[in-house]
Design a protein around this nucleic acid. Sequence first.
RNA 1: GGGCUCAUGGUCUAGUUGGUUAGGACUUCGCCUUGACAUGGCGAAGAUCUCCAGUUCAAAUCUGGAUGGGCCCA
Length: 879
Amino acid sequence: MNQYDREAIEAKWQKNWEQWELYHFDKQSTAPVYSVDNPPRYASGPLHVGHATHYTHIDFAARFRWQTGYNVLFPLCVDVNGMPIEVNVEKKHGIHMRDTPRQEFLRLCKEFADENTDQIRTQFNLLGCCMDPSIFYRTDAEQYRRLTQITFLKLYNEGLIYKGLAPVNWCPRCGTALADAEVEYADRESILNYIHFGVSGQDEDAIVATTRPELICTCQLAAVSPKDEKLAHLIGKKLITPIYGKEVDIIADDKVDPEFGTGLVMICSIGDKDDLDWIYKHNLPVENAMDGQGIMTNIAGDYKGMTIKDARAAIIEDLKKQGLLPKQEKAEQSVGSCWRCKTFIEFLQVPQWFLKTLDAREEVLKIADELNWYPEFMKIRLQNWVNSLNRDWVISRQRYFATPIPIWECNSCGDIILAKEEDCYVDPTVDEPPVPECPECGEQLAGCEDVFDTWMDSSISPLYITYWQQDNELHEKLWPCSLRPQGQDIIRTWAFYTILRSHYLKGGKPWNDIMVDGFILAPDGRPMHASDGNVIDPLDLLEKYGSDAWRYYSSTVTIGEDVAIQEKDILHGQRFCTKLWNIHKFISKTIAGPVEVDWSQLRTSDRWLLTQYSRLVKEITRDYEEFHFDRVIRKLEAFIWHVFADHYIEMVKYRMNDDEQDDALAHTLYTVGLGTLKMLAVIIPHITDEIYEQLYKEFDGVQSITVSEWPEPGIEEDIELTRGDVLKDIISAVRNWKSEQGLALSAELEIIEIIGPRIEYLMGSELDIAGTLKAKNVLLMAEAEVIETPVEIKPIHAIIGPKFKQYASEIVKKLAAVEAAEIAPALESGELDIELSNGETVKIERDMVNIIKVPMLDGKEVKSVNVGDLLILIGQEAD
RNA sequence: GGGCUCAUGGUCUAGUUGGUUAGGACUUCGCCUUGACAUGGCGAAGAUCUCCAGUUCAAAUCUGGAUGGGCCCA
């Protein structure tokens, strides 16, 4: 093996995997299937560190299953439907969607999506992801949209979809209804206008404070707080609106904050969420003061045809002229805005398509309970969301680039004609309806111009990837999916809607497991924002440190946690790769394929390592199954670097000469070297595949380590752990001692004497000690002839605590207060009596404390090192 | 305002069921070119485990409260 050439190796293996078609789902295979409902990457915007981390996490789950014998279904997929691409196309070409012919605009959207799709494929390759290009899908493909439309038809026929007038969140700029999830709330400063209203049957005025005076025309009701004494006399009277002169009731309502404005509130349809609540509560009519483009309607009287902003300015001007506006002041207000273009949203009563959601809440919660959530607490978020729902799901959108709603409507009687399932995919804005004219009244039919909310597409991804309505036999075999990985930010959208649709269409859960990932924050611990200048480009890091280093970093990020990214962690990943390379380079000359040996042929050091290795295999397997990638990498790194390399290899270096074959060594190195490499291949596949090819492939026999067989645990012997630990501690203690003395580690020693009761553990390891520490002689003695002086008595809390309970701390204090040398003999010979403050006497036994001793010779300390109760005396050459 | 979640040396973090000296990484300093690795090895320094209260012989760990991040919602 030569130097580790990261760039060449990563490029080579990315190419190999693709050319060898290693990660293709095999429909014919009889192996168990592991299916990943991979989140289609959205085809606009650059690759974010969040993507790069999240997708490698998903890749870990998939690669682990490839290596444990599954037939993995892990599609490469891209999402393109919806507004972000529309907005990007508008920006790119300097056009507006609604000023552009529909089909032309759709062509530009597709073109944009195509360009980005190629880029996404390249980026996934760079990350070393094993997504299957042979089952690639994009959410605008006719096959995909066909399925979305079929689900609509099925749900419609079951009476779960209805068209209704309903107040919806409305973005006047985009001209579309928004789901609640698409509305963002932020505080903004606005002007609170104090306006004189009349009160019927009396001379006095009442003043209402409002930020939306242009909505006075839709005023339906007025309210005061029942606790508000100064306004109590108004309850039951009628309020007369200025300009319009309309009379509305004044009622008492708990929701009114007497401290806000004047304490008198006008309730309009529809200014904000609170208005909506009152309108539902009091069953008031809903009037639209503006149309879909934010232009005032004839309800607004003289202000008809103005924009909302202009109308507000005009009515304020008029009120001022009439002397009805005594005061204006600034006020902080939480205002909803469009998630994409940030325009302030309004509420409009418009015809929309709804999918019944409220009726299914119980069932969705039941399914949520049947899923395994990783981490568990993410389930609570879904439950809270479901329990807080109060509206059905608006599934129609007044946009272009999404799946068309497959219906035609009669221009005259409004009859609805559904597309036929076998005709889907259809675009009603282009395609002919299944019947030439309205069957009810004979009038012309118009294709529906609305499209679906993109979650209508996204929420059938598990149905799509399991060949629902494409290959029913295969679908039944594949359903439900094994895993849904996704971000925590879309629990109440993607996860919720997918469960909902699975319930309606399949009557059960869509997957077995759901893995919910957290957020990657900037190094300063804040979210990354271009405006904060703290955005980190993962492509730069990939270029600088490589894919394996990035994947190493990614594995250290705990699933579901929000963590700040640190560049040094990626650098550390690169160093780990270098270390791994050098370890295998070093042991390569001793690797000679699998060597059968009897356990009895192995030395303590070998058994010590193999026992730990066997336990590691079990733990790592379980950690992978539970998506604890952070634990996997921590344990593997600690074992490979600090057990295998720092201790085992150091212990066996002297055995690694070419002259004689050491079967025990060859067996141990091969087993542990290959086994740990395989477990690492899930996380860092490039370097491990290269090492595998160079060292192990000829014996293990698979084309790529990434599809090799998972390692098996082996023999474990607890006593060997203890024995090996003592051996390891002795060796490292003496090596440290050499280092501290400024001696070379290769410095020869005349003699090493090890004294103490535990030397029995070292029987048989004398050669290892001598060979590793360059000592000419090694002596093991149960008892010392040197005089050891006790210098410290250390209580063992785990024994003293439970035994003496409330007296424990007093005993510990008493032990610390006396000279170690005074009480040590008593402890050694049997027991020590301690008198407590309450007059009682307790016995301290030998095993309740550690006695720390220092060897003395003629009253002087000798060169020695303590390892627990073992004493090591070191004799230097010519000393 | 509500739900969930996090808070550990200067920085980033580990810490299963409470129990010897709170583990690691980065940084800083010192030593070491030891048969693969100086992108390495050894050592030193550095933490009243955010704060307050409680349970307990014993709390980073359990309970309650406060404060401050993050995500989502209102």
